[in-house]
Write a protein that binds this DNA or RNA. Structure first.
Lengths: 196, 196
DNA sequence: CCTTTATGCGTGTGGGCACTTGCATGAATC
DNA sequence: GATTCATGCAAGTGCCCACACGCATAAAGG
């Protein structure tokens, strides 16, 4: 039974993940500096000492959490699954996917943004979005090559994602809600006309 | 001499504004929770006690600072100064104006975003951007009525600003630089085709 | 049964930070 | 010259927080 190689209590890994989840939920709501290790432990249903036994320090916990909660890994597979013939439908699907993923990472992105601006100690880069841009630009490149779209793929990718990004991240700022499919389709429509 | 009604030292108002400036610079870089009143006072070249005598509390200082540093008030006048005949040139000017203003408020917007996400105590709304959307939507409404553009003005405004917003705010996130005029013109081009 | 291991629990501790207080000073006003 | 007022300065208070330590406990394996 090398399987988990754990002795003592059953869920070592589960405890760890409960802490990570609690940390994410709290950091999202209150920011990194606004969240105490005590709170995280309490929310995870775990003793504060256990938290430190697992992660050593608050900032190590932060890094572990970010690592566990980031990434748009499946984006490429979504692109691969597109019809390729109906651009409007394809972009609509992409938009939906991106928006949904962004919503689930909204708070974390905001906090990341702010901490990027603050230039503080230990904020590792958050590569997800940049990867998104580059993958989407690749997609547009094929479309431009095929002649169904026109323009600079990179600029197109940034425009497309930018609209979605701002509609998700700037919710409170703009006073807009989480975008419904009809809104997304409107965006896709404007964008498609723009690059056709 | 009721003019300033101040006794004692000369620059009461100047001290106040020095504190506000220092506060803004530091809060932008390190966030509200990451900045200490001691630092603010030091940077302002003022004793910490003086800071509290002026503002009473850190959060009151925060509010005063936000009040002093926000607003896109002149946007309407920029809109009013447009030619009205050359949509591309007009949108290009608007884009430049908005981007420049956003860059100068970038850090504060990021911090605001994060603290909005955090749902903390005393973050008063940051009305600037919402006002922008509504003003721009008004502009588009006239264009739609004139028949030179088509679509939902509100959605159009959000798309247009969203692209600019994300290109400014998501600089590090997307890996893009501050947009040059050529880039802005590319955006305007896509957008204009999209709504024409 | 004995050891190992993960956890709970309580009790610090050292440091930082918001905020206070009392006093001295020096400029402007009268 | 006396008063007023904004500020400097120094010391302090109370709180909170990251993090440590020691001990009890209970589950799992040999």
């Amino acid at each position: 039974m090398i399987v988990s190689s754990q002795r003592g209590h059953a869920g070592v890994e589960e405890t760890r993940s409960r802490i990570l989840t609690a940390a994410r939920e709290l950091f999202e709501r209150k920011g990194t500096r606004g969240t105490t290790t005590r709170e995280v432990a309490e929310r995870a249903g775990v003793n504060e000492a256990t938290l430190f036994r697992h992660f050593g320090s608050k900032s190590a916990l932060l890094n572990a959490m970010r690592e566990a909660a980031c990434g748009f890994e499946t984006f490429r597979s979504v692109v691969a699954s597109l019809s390729g013939t109906d651009n409007a439908a394809d972009l609509s699907r992409l938009a939906r996917y991106v928006v949904d993923r962004m919503i689930s990472k909204r708070a974390m992105m905001c906090v990341s943004l702010a901490e990027d601006a603050t230039g503080t100690d230990d904020a590792p880069e958050f590569r997800g979005p940049a990867q998104l841009v580059s993958d989407l630009a690749d997609y547009f490149t094929t479309k431009v090559a095929a002649g169904t779209m026109h323009g600079d793929p990179d600029l197109m990718a940034r425009c497309f994602l930018g609209i979605l990004f701002s509609s998700v991240v700037g919710r409170k700022l703009w006073g807009s809600d989480v975008p419904e499919q009809a809104t997304l389709d409107g965006v896709v429509n404007i964008f498609l006309n723009g690059v056709r």
